[in-house]
């Protein structure tokens, strides 16, 4: 098991390193002279030279790359040229919105999606099953940001239960901050919950046909008891894989939904950075997103191995 985790950790580090290399190549080498690129063609040669100095662009590419990596390992992501602040601080401030939003959305989609999936599987072929599956089919097809707009119309404008947008910082009024995240997280959770419900139902139905369920019934259990005691845990395995992928994409999906609710999250930071051509900020923000995605997949893999004894031993004979 330790060897397995170690192996995955190594793969995780390798993925990040290659990802960093790709990002560095795209944002540092491809534009030719990043300083010129950032300042645009109308910049004076003096200001370009000053920025080059400031960004350390005179050093050879490999030194710059290693310097960047080494800096990040120590928590130094460079200084944003446009905002004149350390990138790490800027990102850290925005993660306070993006991360709670993703976690909240994930929790909602699990709490709603899994029970509905189980319910549909147990009532297979009945009216309830059809109703849940039609809802899920629709839920998968609704773009989360558009659903966010609908939610705003109903709950903020129509019923006035919740704020239509904006965000109160956590240290001012924690309750108000949470209220500000409810509609965005619901918007993010809808498609995810629909997918989870569908996957859970399929997995349970598949498990129902397995030989070990027949064995459990032969022991004296009814179908329902056998599925509950032996099926659900087995059915959760494919669900777990999906969960990992989903969280990864939720983190990225928040970028879009933040737009609807004018939330000061990572997404808005990135859009400002793009429009101002702040390569250093874009570089830092994308690598953070990729770390989040990759780390989630790593965690999924390890959890999977903890649940499934067959996987645990594949690397420790």
């Amino acid at each position: 098991m330790i060897l397995f985790a170690l192996r995955r950790l190594l793969g995780f580090a390798a993925t990040l390193l290659v990802a960093a290399l790709v990002i560095f190549w795209l944002l540092d080498l491809l534009p030719g002279d990043p300083a010129q690129f950032i300042l645009g063609i109308n910049a004076t040669p003096e200001s370009v030279a000053r920025l080059r100095m400031q960004m350390g662009l005179d050093a050879p590419a490999h030194e710059r790359f290693l310097g960047w990596i080494w800096g990040m390992l120590q928590g130094d992501f460079g200084v944003s040229y446009t905002q004149r602040a350390p990138v790490a601080e800027l990102i850290w401030g925005r993660l306070g919105v993006t991360l709670p939003l993703s976690v909240l959305a994930m929790v909602i989609s699990i709490v709603v999606g899994l029970p509905l999936g189980i319910l549909a599987a147990r009532r297979r072929g009945k009216l309830l099953d059809t109703a849940i599956m039609v809802t899920a089919q629709t839920g998968v097809a609704i773009p989360n940001f558009w659903f966010g707009m609908l939610l705003t119309l109903v709950f903020a404008v129509g019923l006035r239960w919740l704020p239509p947008g904006g965000f109160t910082p956590w240290n001012e009024d924690g309750w108000a901050s949470l209220r500000g995240l409810i509609l965005p997280s619901l918007a993010l959770a809808l498609p995810q919950a629909s997918i989870l419900a569908r996957v859970m139902r399929t997995a349970l139905v598949d498990v129902t046909g397995q030989d070990y369920i027949r064995t459990a019934r032969a022991k004296g259990l009814t179908m329902g008891e056998a599925v509950w005691r032996h099926g659900v845990r087995n059915a959760l395995l494919p669900v777990l894989t999906i969960l990992g992928l989903q969280f990864a994409y939720l983190v990225a999906g928040t970028i879009i939904v933040e737009n609807v609710f004018y939330l000061p999250g990572l997404g808005r930071l990135i859009f400002t950075a793009i429009s101002e051509r702040d390569l250093i900020l874009v570089r830092g923000a994308t690598i953070i997103l990729i770390v989040a995605v990759t780390a989630t997949m790593l965690l999924t893999d390890i959890t999977y191995a903890l649940v499934d004894p067959r996987l645990r031993e594949r690397s420790t004979p």
Partner: peptide, 19 residues
Amino acid sequence: TDFVFAFPAVIVAILITTL
């Protein structure tokens, strides 16, 4: 494939748009 999975479409779009 593992590697490309680490790049959700949004991130790729961000990188290309920046450039």
